[in-house]
Simulated scan of single mutants.
Amino acid sequence: MKLARFSKDGITCLGKIENGRIIDLTAAMPACGHSMRALLTVFPHQRAILENVTAPSYALSDVVLEAPIADPQKFLAIGMNYKAHAEEAAAAGVPVPTSQLWFNKQVSCITGPYGHVQIPRAAPYKVDYEAEMGVVIGQRCRHVKREEALGVIAGYFVANDVTARDWQFRSPTFTLGKSFDTHGPIGPWITTADEIPDPHALELTLSLNGEPRQKTSTGDMIYDIYEQIAYLSQVMTLEPGDLLITGTPANVGIQTGTFMKPGDVVRVEVSRLGHIENCFEPEV
């Protein structure tokens, strides 16, 4: 199932994607409002209702797809988790971590799959792209064993870990450089875990103004998704709707001195999960 948030005529609703259309789930799940986090909390028990719901549907061209989760409690990202990216970082003199390297993206950075991304007034020169696959947690969990991690995953999405490189490296943690408003485009929807038999066998690509820049298999991860969940859940309770983004492949912009300019369009695609596409514009 592909679960989404969408707006039509100024009203935001929950929906599911089928055959190129979006089916409005609002009437079937009125208690959830337009919160995907609320829907995920009850999803395991209400799935049959959602699969068989009869409701109005709309062409995707007639609605605005919003960030599938706008209000997660956590938005966490792992750094240098693809082999080729770690190698290019090492070649540039950046130490490769010997364990999982996690940082926060503040949830206020989240934006929709096709909205504009800002080139900030405070960081106009070194805004970079990072194509990533995202994971949505589906149930409250702690101390998850690697072999049990699949059972706590609600689904997957596409992300761009937009980064202001100068702000990233001016402090010991990455948080500020990763958290400018709009620097967390995600979407276009959540593809539920049952539709993806192996999340480590997907193609992840990024293009800049139509020119290919990043391409890899998600199988190139150093720490796979299940190891990531096991590691994080030793530290903190993971909640339904929490977002994890799982690393970017080689050829980020900083490696070639390519940073975002007004009008640049970045498209990130993951096979079987869809794509997001965002135009970069100056902050006003």
Rank of each mutant, 00 (worst) to 15 (best):
T192A: 01
G138H: 13
G112W: 00
L176S: 13
A122R: 06
A131R: 13
G112M: 02
R142K: 14
A193S: 11
E132L: 00
Q168C: 01
C109S: 11
V94A: 06
H183T: 02
V127N: 06
A90H: 15
G93L: 01
A154I: 11
A90G: 12
G112F: 00
A92V: 03
E148M: 03
T205W: 09
T98D: 14
T111H: 08
L176W: 13
F103K: 09
K126E: 14
K105P: 11
T191K: 07
K145D: 11
P95S: 00
P172I: 00
A193R: 13
V127H: 04
F174G: 09
V94M: 09
H183M: 04
P197W: 03
G210M: 10
T218V: 02
V107G: 08
P124S: 01
Y114C: 05
R170N: 08
Y125I: 09
Y129C: 02
C109F: 05
D128P: 04
A89E: 14
K105A: 00
E203C: 04
Q118C: 05
Y156S: 06
D166Y: 04
L176Y: 12
F169G: 14
S99F: 09
S179R: 10
R170L: 02
G93A: 00
V162C: 04
A149D: 13
A123S: 09
V94Q: 10
V158W: 07
L202A: 02
P97C: 02
G210W: 09
I137E: 15
P124N: 05
V117A: 05
G187Q: 03
R142F: 03
W189C: 02
W167A: 01
W189I: 02
A201S: 12
P197I: 08
Y156C: 05
A201M: 10
G112V: 01
V94G: 06
S108I: 14
A164M: 10
G177P: 15
H143L: 07
A131H: 10
E130F: 00
R213K: 13
V158I: 05
R146H: 08
F169P: 14
F169E: 15
P199W: 03
T191F: 00
G112D: 03
R121V: 10
N104K: 10
L176K: 15
R121P: 14
W102K: 11
G187I: 03
G151E: 10
P124K: 03
E132Q: 04
L202D: 06
